[in-house]
């Protein structure tokens, strides 16, 4: 079992899978990065039941899961999804307030080196201060 799994939540299923694909390059095990996106009908949006299902899946493979989200309602639907989880699982979910792509890459690297959820979250949130242009 992995220590910490990463769950990418996006309004777009393609974006969620793309971030997972990109970040998984840095992962040690294939099942440590999860992705969920879109509504139940496949439209752009987020679905609390779908996020809940992904959290349950991730928590079968890892002790804790760190969630990275894209825009506002991804956060609100993730909160709703946590409410839907069985009570004992809720404490194993940590939300990261981080830019999605860079945050996911940093989170996966931290998780692959065995960090717990609090450390993975902190690492992901450092993404906000990362620069792309080299001056």
């Amino acid at each position: 079992m992995n220590k910490t799994a990463i769950l990418v939540v996006s309004h777009s299923k393609i974006l969620a899978l793309g971030v997972k694909e990109l970040a998984s390059q840095m992962a040690r095990s294939a099942d440590s990065v999860w992705a969920v996106g879109g509504t139940e009908d496949g439209d752009i949006g987020t679905s609390a039941p779908a996020i809940c299902e992904a959290l349950e899946g991730a928590l079968q493979t890892a002790s804790e899961v760190v969630v990275l989200m894209d825009l506002g309602s991804a956060y609100l639907n993730t909160l709703a999804a946590i409410e839907m989880l069985d009570a004992p699982l809720r404490g194993r979910v940590t939300l990261a307030d981080a830019p999605l792509i860079e945050g996911a890459v940093l989170a996966v690297v931290a998780a692959a080196s065995g960090d717990n959820a609090a450390d993975v979250r902190a690492r992901a949130e450092e993404a906000r201060d990362m620069h792309k242009l080299i001056s």
């Binding site: 509504t39 139940e40 009908d41 439209d43 752009i44 949006g45 987020t46 679905s47 609390a48 039941p49 506002g72 309602s73 609100l76 639907n77 909160l79 709703a80 839907m84």
Partner: peptide, 15 residues
């Protein structure tokens, strides 16, 4: 509403 809306209004109105 929480299950079916898809946007922020789902969890907000649902709650």
């Amino acid at each position: 509403l929480i299950s079916k809306v898809g946007g922020a209004s789902g969890p907000l109105y649902g709650t």
